[in-house]
């Protein structure tokens, strides 16, 4: 198990390398540069800036330098946020985004799985149709609609929670963003679990478990739940991706100092190093997620073999 994990982790390094290389050259191929402004700078200043950031060097030299710095764990200076390195920017914002994303993912799982199971147990009843319809709405409404609505309801009318803003270690400020961010994956998970649970409940081994006279709790938790979670495991990586992109919207509406905004801003500003840093963080996270899903598969179904 540990060996499998380490082998796969080592295998992720070349993947990240390829992603970095492609991103490096793609962003350079985009027209414009980090120092282009509406008013063109005097050529001397431009030349100074270019040489200060090493942009006057041939692109292969820049690429080599970047990789060298990366190998030392240095993501380079930000081109747009003066006096900040990319490491500092991401280091400050990432914990916020990570907390937001982890809580949203946890909420989606903790609520989505029981809701889906509930709907499956009441298959074709009004409760089933109602929850599944709400789930469709949950998937369809974007978070930039949900979050202001929640803010209006719980912040402005009820005065229970702050509408926006951020304080360290304050769960109150995170509640609404987490809820808005969790809603789409929660809805997807509920629907997935309902479908797979229905299938599992019709299977021969559940019939055996019923014939054994097991109490309903044991039947569901010990015999039915694990196989019913397989599709949820497959959905985890895209769910994490959707939460990461979703956090851009949610963070800017709720005024959270996360890293969600850096990706788009960095790309628009041609902040080459910041974009690369974000790509590295996001792709590492996704690769790690894929690895966790593989381990999860092996646990959910012992017929899956890790090698």
């Amino acid at each position: 198990m540990l060996r499998y994990f380490l082998t796969r982790l080592a295998g992720a390094v070349p993947t990240v390398f390829v992603i970095v290389t492609i991103t490096f050259f793609l962003i350079r191929a985009a027209p414009g540069g980090p120092f282009d402004q509406e008013q063109t700078l005097p050529p001397e200043i431009m030349a100074n800036l270019q040489s200060a950031y090493g942009l006057d060097q041939p692109i292969w030299t820049q690429y080599g330098r970047y990789l060298g710095a990366l190998a030392r764990g240095d993501f380079g200076p930000s081109f747009k946020y003066k006096d900040f390195s990319v490491t500092e920017l991401i280091g400050q914002g990432f914990p916020v985004t990570l907390e937001l994303g982890t809580l949203a993912m946890a909420l989606a799982l903790i609520l989505g799985v029981p809701i889906g199971t509930f709907a499956a147990l009441r298959h074709n009843s009004a409760a089933d149709y109602l929850t599944m319809s709400v789930a469709v709405v949950g998937i369809a409404i974007p978070s930039f609609v949900v979050l202001p609505f929640l803010g209006l309801l719980f912040g402005i009318y009820l005065h229970w929670l702050p509408v926006a803003g951020w304080e360290p270690a304050s769960i109150k400020h995170l509640l609404l963003p987490v809820a808005a961010l969790a809603l789409p994956p929660l809805s997807v998970i509920a629907r997935l679990v309902r479908g797979s649970m229905l299938e599992v409940l019709r299977s021969n081994y559940i019939r055996t478990a019923v014939a054994k006279g097991l109490p309903r709790r044991t039947l569901l938790l010990r015999h039915a739940l694990r196989p019913a979670l397989l599709p949820v495991a497959s959905y985890l990586p895209p769910a994490v991706a959707s939460i990461m992109t979703g956090s851009l919207v949610v963070e800017s509406i709720a005024g959270l100092p996360g890293i969600g905004r850096y990706m788009v801003q960095g790309a628009l500003n041609r902040d080459y190093t910041l974009v690369l840093g974000m790509v590295i963080i996001y792709s590492t996270l996704l690769i790690l997620m894929g690895l966790i899903v593989d381990l999860l598969y092996a646990w959910l179904d012992p017929r899956v073999r890790l090698q």
């Binding site: 299977s203 021969n204 081994y205 019939r207 055996t208 478990a209 019923v210 014939a211 054994k212 006279g213 097991l214 109490p215 309903r216 010990r222 015999h223 694990r226 196989p227 959910l300 179904d301 012992p302 017929r303």
Partner: peptide
Amino acid sequence: DRERLNSIRGSKLTMIFQDPMTSLTPHL
């Protein structure tokens, strides 16, 4: 009722099924 039935089936009244390939829970 289910509770009373569950105290009988699986203990004093049991059943063996046709397909042993699919009649046991795969992950236990």
